[in-house]
Design a protein around this nucleic acid. Structure first.
Lengths: 133, 133
DNA sequence: CTATCTGCAAAACATTTGCTGAGCA
DNA sequence: TGCTCAGCAAATGTTTTGCAGATAG
Protein backbone atom coordinates (compact mmCIF):
# COMPACT_ATOMS: atom_id res chain seq x y z
CA UNK A 1 0.00 0.00 0.00
CA UNK A 2 1.37 3.33 -1.06
CA UNK A 3 1.50 6.28 1.26
CA UNK A 4 0.28 9.03 -1.01
CA UNK A 5 -0.04 12.65 0.08
CA UNK A 6 -3.82 12.28 -0.20
CA UNK A 7 -4.02 9.19 1.99
CA UNK A 8 -1.69 10.78 4.53
CA UNK A 9 -3.73 13.98 4.86
CA UNK A 10 -7.06 12.14 5.03
CA UNK A 11 -5.85 10.00 7.92
CA UNK A 12 -4.21 12.97 9.62
CA UNK A 13 -7.38 15.07 9.47
CA UNK A 14 -9.47 12.20 10.75
CA UNK A 15 -7.14 11.67 13.69
CA UNK A 16 -6.96 15.39 14.40
CA UNK A 17 -10.66 15.78 15.09
CA UNK A 18 -12.79 14.50 17.92
CA UNK A 19 -15.88 14.63 15.76
CA UNK A 20 -16.79 11.74 13.54
CA UNK A 21 -17.05 13.40 10.16
CA UNK A 22 -18.99 12.23 7.13
CA UNK A 23 -17.08 11.61 3.90
CA UNK A 24 -18.01 15.07 2.68
CA UNK A 25 -16.85 16.70 5.89
CA UNK A 26 -13.53 14.88 5.51
CA UNK A 27 -13.41 16.09 1.91
CA UNK A 28 -13.94 19.69 3.01
CA UNK A 29 -11.19 19.54 5.63
CA UNK A 30 -8.72 17.87 3.30
CA UNK A 31 -9.45 20.35 0.53
CA UNK A 32 -8.00 23.11 2.66
CA UNK A 33 -4.65 21.36 2.33
CA UNK A 34 -5.01 19.67 -1.07
CA UNK A 35 -7.50 21.93 -2.85
CA UNK A 36 -7.86 19.81 -5.97
CA UNK A 37 -8.39 16.44 -4.31
CA UNK A 38 -11.45 14.68 -5.64
CA UNK A 39 -14.34 13.32 -3.62
CA UNK A 40 -13.84 9.92 -5.25
CA UNK A 41 -10.33 9.75 -3.84
CA UNK A 42 -11.63 10.54 -0.38
CA UNK A 43 -14.22 7.77 -0.58
CA UNK A 44 -11.68 5.32 -1.97
CA UNK A 45 -9.18 6.05 0.77
CA UNK A 46 -11.72 5.95 3.57
CA UNK A 47 -12.71 2.56 2.25
CA UNK A 48 -9.13 1.26 2.12
CA UNK A 49 -8.37 2.55 5.62
CA UNK A 50 -11.49 0.83 6.95
CA UNK A 51 -10.57 -2.51 5.40
CA UNK A 52 -7.13 -2.17 6.90
CA UNK A 53 -8.65 -1.49 10.31
CA UNK A 54 -6.82 1.81 10.61
CA UNK A 55 -10.10 3.69 10.94
CA UNK A 56 -13.69 2.57 11.37
CA UNK A 57 -16.97 3.34 9.73
CA UNK A 58 -20.15 4.10 11.66
CA UNK A 59 -23.12 3.31 9.48
CA UNK A 60 -25.87 3.36 12.06
CA UNK A 61 -26.18 7.11 12.47
CA UNK A 62 -28.44 8.09 9.62
CA UNK A 63 -28.18 8.44 5.87
CA UNK A 64 -24.55 9.39 5.71
CA UNK A 65 -21.80 7.19 7.02
CA UNK A 66 -19.37 8.65 9.52
CA UNK A 67 -15.74 7.84 10.12
CA UNK A 68 -13.83 7.32 13.31
CA UNK A 69 -10.07 7.79 13.43
CA UNK A 70 -9.71 5.76 16.61
CA UNK A 71 -11.07 2.29 16.02
CA UNK A 72 -10.32 1.12 19.53
CA UNK A 73 -13.36 -0.27 21.26
CA UNK A 74 -15.50 2.46 22.76
CA UNK A 75 -19.13 3.47 22.95
CA UNK A 76 -20.81 5.96 20.65
CA UNK A 77 -23.44 8.51 21.52
CA UNK A 78 -25.58 9.28 18.47
CA UNK A 79 -27.82 12.30 17.96
CA UNK A 80 -31.20 11.11 16.74
CA UNK A 81 -31.76 14.49 15.13
CA UNK A 82 -28.76 14.95 12.89
CA UNK A 83 -26.74 11.76 13.23
CA UNK A 84 -23.78 13.47 14.87
CA UNK A 85 -21.64 11.02 16.85
CA UNK A 86 -19.68 11.56 20.03
CA UNK A 87 -17.46 9.18 21.93
CA UNK A 88 -18.63 8.17 25.36
CA UNK A 89 -15.89 8.63 27.91
CA UNK A 90 -17.70 7.27 30.92
CA UNK A 91 -17.65 3.59 31.64
CA UNK A 92 -21.04 2.02 31.16
CA UNK A 93 -21.96 -1.01 33.19
CA UNK A 94 -23.72 -3.32 30.80
CA UNK A 95 -24.49 -6.93 31.51
CA UNK A 96 -25.46 -9.01 28.56
CA UNK A 97 -26.36 -12.42 29.82
CA UNK A 98 -27.78 -15.43 28.04
CA UNK A 99 -26.74 -14.00 24.67
CA UNK A 100 -25.84 -17.50 23.65
CA UNK A 101 -29.28 -18.77 24.51
CA UNK A 102 -30.75 -17.01 21.51
CA UNK A 103 -32.59 -19.50 19.38
CA UNK A 104 -31.93 -18.72 15.73
CA UNK A 105 -30.45 -20.11 12.55
CA UNK A 106 -28.15 -17.09 12.53
CA UNK A 107 -24.67 -17.47 13.95
CA UNK A 108 -24.52 -14.95 16.77
CA UNK A 109 -21.39 -12.84 16.69
CA UNK A 110 -22.02 -10.10 19.22
CA UNK A 111 -24.10 -7.22 20.46
CA UNK A 112 -24.15 -3.66 19.20
CA UNK A 113 -24.81 -1.04 21.80
CA UNK A 114 -25.20 2.66 21.11
CA UNK A 115 -26.35 5.48 23.32
CA UNK A 116 -29.00 7.68 21.77
CA UNK A 117 -29.47 11.34 22.52
CA UNK A 118 -30.07 14.81 21.17
CA UNK A 119 -27.15 17.15 20.51
CA UNK A 120 -27.20 20.80 21.64
CA UNK A 121 -27.89 22.10 18.13
CA UNK A 122 -30.85 19.79 17.54
CA UNK A 123 -32.13 20.50 21.01
CA UNK A 124 -32.27 24.22 20.17
CA UNK A 125 -33.96 23.51 16.85
CA UNK A 126 -36.60 21.49 18.61
CA UNK A 127 -37.36 24.28 21.05
CA UNK A 128 -37.61 26.88 18.28
CA UNK A 129 -39.92 24.66 16.31
CA UNK A 130 -42.13 24.09 19.33
CA UNK A 131 -42.35 27.85 19.74
CA UNK A 132 -43.69 28.43 16.26
CA UNK A 133 -46.50 25.90 16.57
CA UNK B 1 -56.29 9.35 6.95
CA UNK B 2 -57.83 7.46 4.09
CA UNK B 3 -57.74 3.72 3.83
CA UNK B 4 -56.84 3.25 0.21
CA UNK B 5 -56.49 -0.17 -1.38
CA UNK B 6 -52.75 0.48 -1.71
CA UNK B 7 -52.27 1.40 1.94
CA UNK B 8 -54.32 -1.59 3.01
CA UNK B 9 -52.33 -4.11 0.96
CA UNK B 10 -48.96 -2.66 1.99
CA UNK B 11 -49.81 -3.00 5.65
CA UNK B 12 -51.32 -6.44 5.14
CA UNK B 13 -48.23 -7.75 3.36
CA UNK B 14 -45.97 -6.31 6.02
CA UNK B 15 -47.98 -7.97 8.77
CA UNK B 16 -48.15 -11.24 6.89
CA UNK B 17 -44.40 -11.79 6.81
CA UNK B 18 -41.98 -12.54 9.59
CA UNK B 19 -39.13 -11.07 7.60
CA UNK B 20 -38.39 -7.39 7.73
CA UNK B 21 -38.53 -6.41 4.08
CA UNK B 22 -36.89 -3.45 2.40
CA UNK B 23 -39.11 -0.96 0.55
CA UNK B 24 -38.39 -2.73 -2.72
CA UNK B 25 -39.23 -6.11 -1.27
CA UNK B 26 -42.54 -4.68 -0.05
CA UNK B 27 -43.06 -3.23 -3.52
CA UNK B 28 -42.47 -6.66 -5.12
CA UNK B 29 -44.93 -8.40 -2.81
CA UNK B 30 -47.60 -5.75 -3.22
CA UNK B 31 -47.21 -5.76 -6.99
CA UNK B 32 -48.47 -9.32 -7.08
CA UNK B 33 -51.80 -7.96 -5.85
CA UNK B 34 -51.79 -4.45 -7.33
CA UNK B 35 -49.54 -4.84 -10.38
CA UNK B 36 -49.50 -1.18 -11.35
CA UNK B 37 -48.70 0.29 -7.94
CA UNK B 38 -45.78 2.68 -8.07
CA UNK B 39 -42.65 2.54 -5.95
CA UNK B 40 -43.24 6.14 -4.86
CA UNK B 41 -46.59 5.15 -3.38
CA UNK B 42 -44.94 2.34 -1.43
CA UNK B 43 -42.34 4.71 -0.01
CA UNK B 44 -44.94 7.34 0.82
CA UNK B 45 -47.17 4.86 2.61
CA UNK B 46 -44.36 3.23 4.53
CA UNK B 47 -43.42 6.70 5.67
CA UNK B 48 -46.97 7.58 6.77
CA UNK B 49 -47.39 4.28 8.60
CA UNK B 50 -44.11 4.87 10.44
CA UNK B 51 -45.12 8.35 11.55
CA UNK B 52 -48.39 6.93 12.76
CA UNK B 53 -46.56 4.27 14.72
CA UNK B 54 -48.39 1.47 12.96
CA UNK B 55 -45.13 0.02 11.66
CA UNK B 56 -41.50 0.79 12.39
CA UNK B 57 -38.42 1.46 10.34
CA UNK B 58 -35.09 -0.22 10.99
CA UNK B 59 -32.35 1.96 9.58
CA UNK B 60 -29.33 0.36 11.22
CA UNK B 61 -29.07 -2.72 9.04
CA UNK B 62 -27.14 -1.49 6.05
CA UNK B 63 -27.77 0.66 3.03
CA UNK B 64 -31.45 -0.10 2.65
CA UNK B 65 -33.97 0.56 5.35
CA UNK B 66 -36.18 -2.30 6.50
CA UNK B 67 -39.71 -2.26 7.81
CA UNK B 68 -41.27 -4.06 10.73
CA UNK B 69 -45.00 -4.71 10.86
CA UNK B 70 -44.97 -5.26 14.60
CA UNK B 71 -43.61 -2.17 16.29
CA UNK B 72 -43.97 -3.61 19.77
CA UNK B 73 -40.74 -3.50 21.68
CA UNK B 74 -38.50 -6.44 20.83
CA UNK B 75 -34.89 -7.13 19.96
CA UNK B 76 -33.51 -7.44 16.46
CA UNK B 77 -30.89 -9.80 15.20
CA UNK B 78 -29.11 -8.30 12.20
CA UNK B 79 -27.01 -10.16 9.63
CA UNK B 80 -23.75 -8.31 9.17
CA UNK B 81 -23.44 -9.78 5.69
CA UNK B 82 -26.69 -8.80 3.99
CA UNK B 83 -28.57 -6.72 6.55
CA UNK B 84 -31.39 -9.22 6.94
CA UNK B 85 -33.24 -8.76 10.22
CA UNK B 86 -34.87 -11.34 12.45
CA UNK B 87 -36.83 -10.87 15.65
CA UNK B 88 -35.26 -12.27 18.77
CA UNK B 89 -37.77 -14.43 20.63
CA UNK B 90 -35.64 -15.25 23.63
CA UNK B 91 -35.55 -12.94 26.57
CA UNK B 92 -32.19 -11.26 26.94
CA UNK B 93 -31.04 -10.17 30.31
CA UNK B 94 -29.47 -6.78 29.84
CA UNK B 95 -28.52 -4.45 32.64
CA UNK B 96 -27.74 -0.93 31.65
CA UNK B 97 -26.59 0.87 34.72
CA UNK B 98 -25.13 4.33 35.16
CA UNK B 99 -26.54 5.40 31.80
CA UNK B 100 -27.34 8.70 33.40
CA UNK B 101 -23.77 9.16 34.52
CA UNK B 102 -22.66 9.83 30.97
CA UNK B 103 -20.91 13.15 30.80
CA UNK B 104 -21.94 14.91 27.63
CA UNK B 105 -23.66 18.00 26.30
CA UNK B 106 -26.08 15.69 24.56
CA UNK B 107 -29.40 14.95 26.23
CA UNK B 108 -29.38 11.20 26.70
CA UNK B 109 -32.61 9.58 25.58
CA UNK B 110 -31.87 5.87 25.63
CA UNK B 111 -29.80 2.93 24.50
CA UNK B 112 -30.01 1.03 21.25
CA UNK B 113 -29.19 -2.63 21.46
CA UNK B 114 -29.01 -5.00 18.52
CA UNK B 115 -27.74 -8.54 18.25
CA UNK B 116 -25.30 -9.09 15.40
CA UNK B 117 -24.88 -12.33 13.53
CA UNK B 118 -24.51 -14.04 10.19
CA UNK B 119 -27.54 -15.51 8.46
CA UNK B 120 -27.46 -19.01 6.90
CA UNK B 121 -27.18 -17.67 3.34
CA UNK B 122 -24.23 -15.39 4.14
CA UNK B 123 -22.61 -18.14 6.15
CA UNK B 124 -22.66 -20.39 3.07
CA UNK B 125 -21.30 -17.60 0.88
CA UNK B 126 -18.45 -17.09 3.26
CA UNK B 127 -17.50 -20.76 3.20
CA UNK B 128 -17.60 -20.89 -0.59
CA UNK B 129 -15.46 -17.81 -0.85
CA UNK B 130 -12.91 -19.25 1.56
CA UNK B 131 -12.73 -22.36 -0.62
CA UNK B 132 -11.83 -20.44 -3.74
CA UNK B 133 -8.97 -18.54 -2.17
C1' DC C 1 9.69 0.78 -14.54
C1' DT C 2 5.19 -0.63 -13.25
C1' DA C 3 1.57 -1.46 -10.25
C1' DT C 4 -1.08 1.39 -7.61
C1' DC C 5 -3.28 5.57 -7.17
C1' DT C 6 -5.46 10.12 -8.62
C1' DG C 7 -8.84 13.30 -10.88
C1' DC C 8 -12.72 13.63 -13.47
C1' DA C 9 -17.09 12.48 -14.90
C1' DA C 10 -20.61 9.35 -15.35
C1' DA C 11 -23.19 5.68 -13.26
C1' DA C 12 -25.51 3.37 -9.67
C1' DC C 13 -28.59 3.10 -6.01
C1' DA C 14 -32.04 4.26 -2.54
C1' DT C 15 -35.21 7.62 -1.58
C1' DT C 16 -37.95 11.95 -2.18
C1' DT C 17 -40.80 15.12 -4.59
C1' DG C 18 -43.71 17.93 -8.09
C1' DC C 19 -47.46 17.55 -10.80
C1' DT C 20 -51.89 16.10 -12.56
C1' DG C 21 -55.56 13.27 -12.49
C1' DA C 22 -58.25 9.70 -9.57
C1' DG C 23 -61.06 8.18 -5.74
C1' DC C 24 -62.32 7.89 -0.70
C1' DA C 25 -65.45 9.89 2.72
C1' DT D 1 -67.64 17.68 -3.81
C1' DG D 2 -63.30 18.49 -1.65
C1' DC D 3 -59.19 17.00 0.01
C1' DT D 4 -56.18 13.33 0.28
C1' DC D 5 -53.89 10.11 -2.42
C1' DA D 6 -51.94 7.50 -6.58
C1' DG D 7 -49.03 7.12 -10.65
C1' DC D 8 -45.40 8.78 -13.23
C1' DA D 9 -41.15 10.74 -13.95
C1' DA D 10 -37.68 13.70 -12.71
C1' DA D 11 -34.73 15.23 -8.99
C1' DT D 12 -31.87 14.44 -5.03
C1' DG D 13 -28.04 12.89 -2.25
C1' DT D 14 -24.66 9.55 -1.24
C1' DT D 15 -21.50 6.39 -2.78
C1' DT D 16 -19.19 3.67 -6.51
C1' DT D 17 -16.78 3.00 -10.74
C1' DG D 18 -14.42 3.31 -15.53
C1' DC D 19 -10.85 5.41 -17.68
C1' DA D 20 -6.54 7.72 -18.82
C1' DG D 21 -2.81 9.92 -17.04
C1' DA D 22 0.34 10.63 -12.73
C1' DT D 23 3.45 8.87 -9.21
C1' DA D 24 5.40 6.17 -5.18
C1' DG D 25 8.61 2.68 -4.32
Amino acid sequence: MRLTKQRQVILEQLRMTKSHPTAIEVYDRVREIIPNISLGTVYRNLDVLCRQGTISRIDTCGDQKRFDGTPEDHLHLICSGCGRVQDVESELDINVDNLMNIDSEFTITGVRIEIMGVCPACSTDRKNQAGTN
